[in-house]
Every structure is written in structure tokens, then in C-alpha cells.
């Protein structure tokens, strides 16, 4: 029994240990040292790196920006994915086709989608797609990816296009687990469609909804690819992970102490928010 257990679990556990737990542990260790241009530091700093990061303007700004970003994008994705799931789940024919069509963008890489959005749909010159449409109405071209607040439109549409299908599938799976007799009973009692939605569908989707909310929130804080590729390195719309990347890896700057401290703070923040959210929604 134990031999079979270790035979099957062992390799994965080893991989997890070597490639996940050891790096996490090492990173926590580095966060207490002055680790510039080295991963085997010797100068112990205590909590200095944490203090620096917690008083560091750009890092706090990125955390603030992304709390606001999450506050908008999480509910938006949630509602749209649920609406899409209800629509697709409700149709009688070609359901598999529509499911696949909406799910397909999820298979696209964030980097590829970012480049399409940046270079083709939302480029700033007069012949870009969005600016061509604006031109029909006589408006001046907009430098979408450069000017605040327009870049948020680019980033949010990109994220919605990529993510919606995946969360729609989660909701459809949840919807299909709701026993049909509940609806039948409701209809016999004369319930209207919105009453069925309010009193049957939504309560029955509770576990799915909590999972989707958690995943969305974590994804929002972990945002990296589209911000890195669409916005580049400026101080606007810079997510925490992009800032930490520049601190500890980007363009030759190797400050692993501060980078790791920031990563630990971010992890604690995500864990904290997730726990609170879990408490609130499962009660």
C-alpha cells in the first residue's frame, strides 16, 4: 500500500518540493537579507526589506491600483460570465457549438492576445481599428495604450475576452447540477422566470460562485502578461507583479531581498482577502 502510494505520488511530490516549496521557502529567506545580485546572501536585514516595501511609493501604488482594478473587474467578469452561462445553457440547439465558441479565446495566450490588442485593434495611429471606427464619427485618433484612462478599456476588454469563456463553463457545470425537479415544482407553483433565477438558480450556484469569485480575485492580483506586454514599463497601471519583476529581475536590476519581501506581502494579502471572502460567502 505505502509503496504504491509513494510510487504514484512520489515523483509529483518531489517535483512540487523542488520546483515550488523550496523556491517559496528560499524567497521567504531572501526577504530577510540584503540580496542584491546574489541568491546566497550573508547580510541579515531583519524586517528592513518589509519596511522599505511598505513605505515604497510605487509598490503601494500598485497594490492600491490593483485593489481598485479587482473591485471593478471581478464583479464585471462574474456577472457577464453568469449571464453568458444562463444564455448558453438556455438554448435548445447548437449548445455545444456556442459553448466552444465562447470558450475558445481561453486557449489563446495572453501574450498573443496582448499583441493583437496593442498592435492591431487599439494602436494609436489613424488606421488602427478602434481609431478607424472613431474616424467615421469624425473623432480624433486616441493613443489607446498610452493615455490614462483609455488603457483600462484596452486591458479590461482583453481580459474579458480571454477569461469569460472559462468562467462561463464553470457556471454551466454548476447550472447542470441543479436538479430539474426544483424548477418543475416552482413552475407548478406559478413562479416567474426571474423568481426561479432568484430563489433557485442563484442559491444553488453558491459553491460555484464562491469558487469563481476566489479564482477571479487571485487572477486579478496576479495580473502580469497583458500589463507587461501592452503597457510596458511606465508607472501607470502597473500591477504588483510587474513592479516586483522590475525590482528583482528586469533589465539587470537584481534586488531579490526587496523583490521577495514584496512577493511575501502580496501573497499574504491575497491569502488574507481570500480567507475573509471565503468566510463571508460560505456562512
Amino acid at each position: 500500500m505505502t509503496r504504491t502510494f509513494w510510487l504514484f505520488v512520489g515523483p509529483f511530490f518531489l517535483g512540487l518540493l523542488v520546483f515550488v516549496y523550496v523556491p517559496i521557502g528560499w524567497s521567504v529567506l531572501l526577504s530577510f537579507f540584503d540580496a542584491r545580485n546574489t541568491v546566497t546572501p550573508t547580510t541579515f536585514m531583519g524586517f528592513d526589506n518589509y519596511a522599505d516595501m511598505l513605505t515604497d511609493g510605487p509598490f503601494l501604488e500598485s497594490l492600491g491600483t490593483f485593489s481598485v482594478f479587482a473591485a471593478f473587474v471581478v464583479p464585471l467578469t462574474f456577472v457577464l460570465a453568469l449571464a453568458l452561462a444562463l444564455l448558453v445553457n438556455g438554448i435548445r440547439f447548437m449548445q455545444a457549438f456556442f459553448r466552444s465558441v465562447f470558450f475558445l479565446p481561453f486557449a489563446c495566450s495572453y501574450v498573443v492576445a496582448s499583441l493583437v490588442w496593442k498592435l492591431s485593434l487599439f494602436n494609436g495611429v489613424r488606421y488602427g481599428l478602434a481609431n478607424t471606427v472613431l474616424g467615421w464619427f469624425g473623432a480624433d485618433p486616441i493613443a489607446w495604450t498610452v493615455t490614462p484612462p483609455w488603457y483600462w478599456l484596452v486591458l479590461v476588454t482583453l481580459r474579458l475576452w480571454l477569461q469569460l469563456g472559462f468562467y462561463m463553463i464553470l457556471f454551466i457545470a454548476g447550472l447542470q447540477r441543479i436538479p430539474h425537479h426544483l424548477y418543475e415544482a416552482a413552475w407548478i407553483d406559478g413562479a416567474r422566470p426571474w423568481q426561479a433565477l432568484r430563489h433557485i438558480t442563484l442559491p444553488q450556484l453558491r459553491t460555484t460562485s464562491v469558487a469563481v469569485l476566489l479564482l477571479l480575485l487571485i487572477a486579478a492580483y496576479q495580473a502580469f502578461d497583458e500589463f507587461y506586454n501592452v503597457l510596458g514599463s511606465g508607472p501607470f497601471g502597473r500591477p504588483p507583479l510587474v513592479y516586483l519583476y522590475y525590482t528583482s529581475l528586469g533589465s539587470g536590476g537584481q534586488d531579490f531581498g526587496h523583490g521577495s519581501a514584496g512577493a511575501v506581502i502580496l501573497s499574504l494579502l491575497i491569502a488574507g482577502v481570500t480567507l475573509v471572502q471565503g468566510r463571508v460567502f460560505t456562512r
Binding site: 493615455t147 490614462p148 501607470f236 528586469g250 533589465s251 536590476g253
Partner: peptide, 19 residues
């Protein structure tokens, strides 16, 4: 002119010029 200095300086300039 290290990358930490460059980031601090260019962030400041970006906020002035673009915002």
C-alpha cells in the same frame, strides 16, 4: 546609473510628462 535609479527617475518623468 543602476536600474533602481533609472526606474525611480523614469517613473517621475513619466508622471510629469504623461499625467
Amino acid at each position: 546609473w543602476t536600474s533602481a535609479m533609472r526606474t525611480a527617475f523614469e517613473d517621475a518623468v513619466a508622471r510629469v510628462v504623461r499625467d
